[in-house]
Nucleic acid binder design. Structure first.
Lengths: 203, 203
DNA sequence: ATAAAGTTTAACCAAATGGTTAACAAAGAT
DNA sequence: ATCTTTGTTAACCATTTGGTTAAACTTTAT
């Protein structure tokens, strides 16, 4: 008998919960819906994760820990500034096309509960600006790039790469694109955005 | 007797609903909480707006119609490209500092129900890309700016201006800023962002 | 003054929802 | 074999929640 049970119940729950939470958010998600999606009894949810809140936190942390390494490409790697910008724009957009609900999910829940950021910061994997700040200051001092604050540049890089996913429905409306056309627009951004940024910090 | 009732109940409800919906979203908001916030009986909510859904839609449409005119600065005004970029970055950021929850609220609910965009598009006030597209194509043809698609530039402008509000809690964490410091960062962006964009489309 | 229309409230209600319990089944341990 | 631990389920429960009803109060029209 081929058992559908190569994956444990616990894993099925986490995957189902991810799907439902990402689509509906914490308050919109229903425990019954997660159970149905995982094809198990609702009580099992409480057996493995004691409450909705706990289950949610498990999903959220998993999601966040998928994104943090991406950010670290910019903040903590020994590439040149241009390399960082090109690599990040390429990698991040590729990654997001595969997980389009992730950024919206994370931003939404952090807005709902801003204090939650504090918890994340204490994590070892939470990215720090220090190295990046040093790199930018040196590049500015050595006249490699125009004068710009590291924080502002960092925000610009994230904005240009993440926003098109968070605001996808709205932007689709504005530029009057269907799903397929919009995906093409996003594909083009993989290089477009990097050049846009590099152009703007040139001397 | 000084009556607290210069504002009608209906207006009090809408204002209270705005506050609660913007903070908690459609599914997180509670009718009782809205009633308490407006200091009226819960039944009155149903008297003026028949259901939670209807009340939500009223709030949402009001919110959206506050933003649409801002977008039209870029898309439909007879300013030069640089003027548009500078004015929009200035106005939009000023406006958002006063209504920081607006963009997140709108994006969240559009993600929850993407079909809702269709309804908005039929609105007369919904911005169209046409004029802007023409302006950019001409500027590119006349070698005023480097080659760039109008859609990509448009997305870039919105990303750089809106994302810092949508992602505020996260960005505060990354750049290690408290509320006051972050507000300064945003203030600086009013001009910083415009120059960033203009620099990147120069020939 | 009185009727009619509009506004506001307290008391209710049915459905949905997160969570618990207790019984049952499967798998290891002795 | 039997005992113990782990996994799974159906039935149940208390609370929350959006929504209704009917009565009372206020304003406006006649």
């Amino acid at each position: 008998m081929t058992k559908t049970k190569d994956i444990s119940a616990e894993e099925k729950i986490l995957e189902a919960a991810r799907q439902v939470f990402e689509n509906k958010g914490m308050s919109g998600a229903r425990m019954q819906e997660i159970a149905d999606e995982a094809k198990i009894n609702k009580s099992l949810l409480h057996y493995y994760y004691r409450s909705k809140q706990k289950l949610f936190e498990a999903v959220f942390k998993t999601a966040f820990h998928k994104l943090a390494p991406q950010i670290n490409i910019i903040l903590n790697s020994d590439q040149s500034i241009c390399e960082k910008i090109r690599n990040f724009s390429m990698n991040y957009t590729s990654f997001m096309i595969k997980h389009p609900y992730l950024p919206n999910f994370i931003l939404q829940e952090l807005n709902r509960n801003p204090a939650f950021v504090k918890e994340l910061i204490s994590t070892k994997t939470f990215p720090s600006m220090k190295n990046f700040q040093k790199q930018i200051r040196e590049a500015v001092a050595n006249k490699k790039i125009r004068k710009i604050e590291a924080e502002q540049l960092f925000i610009n890089i994230l904005s240009l790469n993440i926003f098109p996913f968070v605001a996808a429905p709205l932007l689709k409306g504005f530029i009057n694109a269907n799903d397929k056309e919009y995906k093409t627009v996003l594909e083009n951004r993989k290089v477009e955005v990097a050049e846009f940024i590099i152009q703007s910090i040139k001397l």
